[in-house]
Design a protein around this nucleic acid. Structure first.
Lengths: 195, 195
DNA sequence: GGTAACATGTAAGCGGTTACATGATTAG
DNA sequence: CTAATCATGTAACCGCTTACATGTTACC
């Protein structure tokens, strides 16, 4: 609500919506154009935050107008292209946002878990198939995350240690899911043998 | 897209949107009125799926028209109230949905992880504060989940074993987050002492 | 010479949330 | 007698996604 409405906070820093801060943060990490931001997001935060080109380009305009990033036309041949760098005001604005004590809700929207929650409506065998599907899903995600691990490790070499942390969190999350699934499947089998 | 548009699938079962199936599943688990569904959701799947009264009541109407639930007026005094029970057609429709092999995307939207991802923009101390905040958040969530564990355990006694599974997944998820945070914090301290 | 990738947008629609509205009943 | 809970909705809004549009450059 108090977002990107042209309002200005008490410190003189314009209030921006999360997408704008994401773009700002990505520019700081070295993503130069809107396109590069899109690519970088796809290799990093897309597992806990999504943003599409439709949000990126207006955000870049807004951030430049606010003086938080500085852009210049840098066409490659006849292909238009605008590149950006963060300003010192932008650094400060990003830091302020990061420091801001505000609720940080994690909103999970997982139809797989919903189905699993209702799985007692199925035959035991079918329930276990659903369990396998959910487990497989996490295993796939782990593979995807492992594939981008080198990128995060490279960022760490450059002094950005937190991208690797959030990646590890993703891995831990899905590993935990797999573990719980396996444990549950094992117990199901034991029960079946006894009963 | 192929959702609640009045269209009918090849098996004669009307295609419903996820919210309707959630309502259907909750009725099956014994939530009788729209209000009870809301309560039950708040005690169970709300950690990976949300649904508001605004979605629940129209879904109930739709499900009853489709013959998947049967409702009857059951006012308490002068307070109007409509209660529902699942029909055999409803059972079949729910099972079909659960069996349906369709993509099950887990969409996570976590501004906390986004902030943590960008935390290299902060001083080391401030970064660690952010880390603490994210960790605290998961610890709080663990406490909340523990509080509803008895409910899920009771459901298990009644033959519904999957609610407890999804609850354990939530616990495992957040415990994994806490573990990764603690490990990272420990390593940060080691680095600081050395450097 | 065609396909994939680079690069930046517009327009429409949808699912979902927020705010609001209404009224009855129970507990303190 | 007041607040919380029970119970069911309507109306407006909004962030985001999807589909579409457009042109360039690199690669096979």
């Amino acid at each position: 609500m108090a977002n990107a409405t042209g309002r200005v906070g008490q410190s003189g820093v314009p209030e921006l919506a999360p997408p704008a801060y994401v773009v700002l943060g990505m520019v700081r990490l070295g993503a130069r154009s809107g396109y590069e931001i899109k690519q970088t997001v796809g290799q990093s935060i897309r597992f806990f935050w999504t943003i599409s080109p439709v949000q990126i380009y207006p955000s870049l305009v807004q951030l430049e107008q606010a003086g938080l990033i500085a852009g210049r036309a840098e066409p490659q041949g006849k292909r238009r292209r605008r590149t950006y760098g963060i300003t010192s005001a932008g650094e400060r604005a990003l830091q302020q946002w990061l420091r801001r004590a505000e609720p940080m809700p994690f909103e999970l929207r997982d139809i797989g878990l919903v189905k699993l929650f209702f799985a007692d409506a199925l035959d035991p065998t079918e329930g276990q198939e659903l369990l396998s599907a959910v487990m497989q899903r996490s295993e796939d995600r782990i593979a995807t995350l492992r594939a981008i691990e080198p990128t995060a490790a490279a960022a760490e070499e450059d002094g950005n240690i937190y991208p690797l942390l959030t990646l590890r969190m993703g891995l831990a999350y899905h590993q935990a899911m797999v573990d719980v699934c396996q444990d549950f499947a094992r117990r199901l089998n034991v029960t079946r043998q006894r009963g």
